[in-house]
Structure formats: structure tokens, C-alpha cells
Design a protein around this nucleic acid. Sequence first.
DNA 1: TGAATATATAACGTATAGCGAATATATTGA
DNA 2: TCAATATATTCGCTATACGTTATATATTCA
Lengths: 99, 99
Amino acid sequence: METFAALADPTRVGIVEALAGRARTVSEIVELFDVSQPAISRHLRVLREAGLVRAQVDGRRRIYHLEPQPLREIDRWLERYRRFWARKLRSLEAHLEEG
Amino acid sequence: METFAALADPTRVGIVEALAGRARTVSEIVELFDVSQPAISRHLRVLREAGLVRAQVDGRRRIYHLEPQPLREIDRWLERYRRFWARKLRSLEAHLEEG
DNA sequence: TGAATATATAACGTATAGCGAATATATTGA
DNA sequence: TCAATATATTCGCTATACGTTATATATTCA
């Protein structure tokens, strides 16, 4: 899953979180982080290639939007593991009742 | 989230998936992939440090188990984004009805 | 005890990631 | 048209990731 690699960098996770609030231009995103504009553009490229964001061209600006599909795929991947923590919770409960 | 970085490598995702079936020794895991035993041990270390697996010592063997907690944190992180794809689905439905 | 087994670590090479500075490419507006 | 603005790309650097081979550390068992 390329999505995990795209989210492996904390700045990129921050960008995704910022775009969850609302769409933003590159300049707006640059203001949020303590890295240069080229570095942000590179992060945006990685996110774009992973399908996590989309750029809407508006004159000389690019308005970046969140694309939830890859996150949804992670959600589906996690399905298999939900029973694991359900089991953990049950055994924790059993332990508490017993103690 | 360190978990994303731990899952950024396909071999490590494969190990997590294998351990979802059942706990396994290092040798068993090595058999599943086309990389050397030291490479697997390194991947296991990354997964261990991210809290995704736990090693139970059994003589000279280590039995690796899945630890679901970090995956559960991803699940909770995704919570915020669920409304995004719900919205997308609604607008898709609206589009279909209209068309 | 000593050979075999299971796993981890060390050492080293190469590829890739991430950064800033400089530069290229559009686009806007005076 | 030309300067300013917005963004992307290139370049060069350093750090880190991942792989293999070699080796270290336990542990088992004949």
C-alpha cells in the first residue's frame, strides 16, 4: 500500500490533516510548516501520486483538496484486524472481572 | 504516527498480515519472503519498536505475535476522514439519481 | 562439552528521501 | 510589456533505509 509510505512523513500527515479542515493553496500550506516552499511542493507531489490529494488549478494558484479514497482503503485493510483488538478488550474485561 | 513509517515497507506489511493469521517464529517468517534472515530480523525490529509485534521468547526461538494497538490508533485517526468519503458517496448518489 | 540451531547485530554498499538554494514556468496586473 | 506572484523543478548535500555477508549470542542436545 503506497498510502502508508506517503503518510510515513510527519509533514505529509500534517498536510492531510490541514486539508481535512478545508482546501488550501500551496502558500497557505507553506505557512503552516517550518520548511521551504520547494519542500512542501515535493511533499504535495508525493501525496498527489499516492492519490491522497488533488490540485485544482486556479490561475497561478493550485488549490489542494483531500481525496479520501486511499484512506478508505486503509480503513478496509484494517477490517481484518478489528477482531484482534475486540479480543484484547474481551480478555481485559475478563481480567478485570476476575480481579 | 510512527506506525505509518513501520508499514511503509511491503515486506513489513506482509509480516503483519502473516501474523494476523497466527503467531510465528522468525524462521517461519523468513520462509514466507524472498529476503535473508538478517533482513527479516531488521524488519521485525522496526515492527517491534513501533509496537506492532511482540516477541515471546521460547528457548532459542522467538515467537512473534501481532499487537493490534497501533493499528487501532490508525483506526481512530481515520475517524475524522470517514465523513469525507460519506460525503463523496452522497454526492455520487445524487449524481446518479440526477443522471 | 561441543556441534548444531535460532536469532540478532555489525559492517558495508547502494538507493532513495528530504532539505535548502537556485532556477524555471505560468499567470496576473500595473 | 514587464515586474511581481505562485508554484514546480533542478541541483547538490547529507541522512537514512534496505539489502547481503559475516559474525556474535544464546540455547539445545548428543
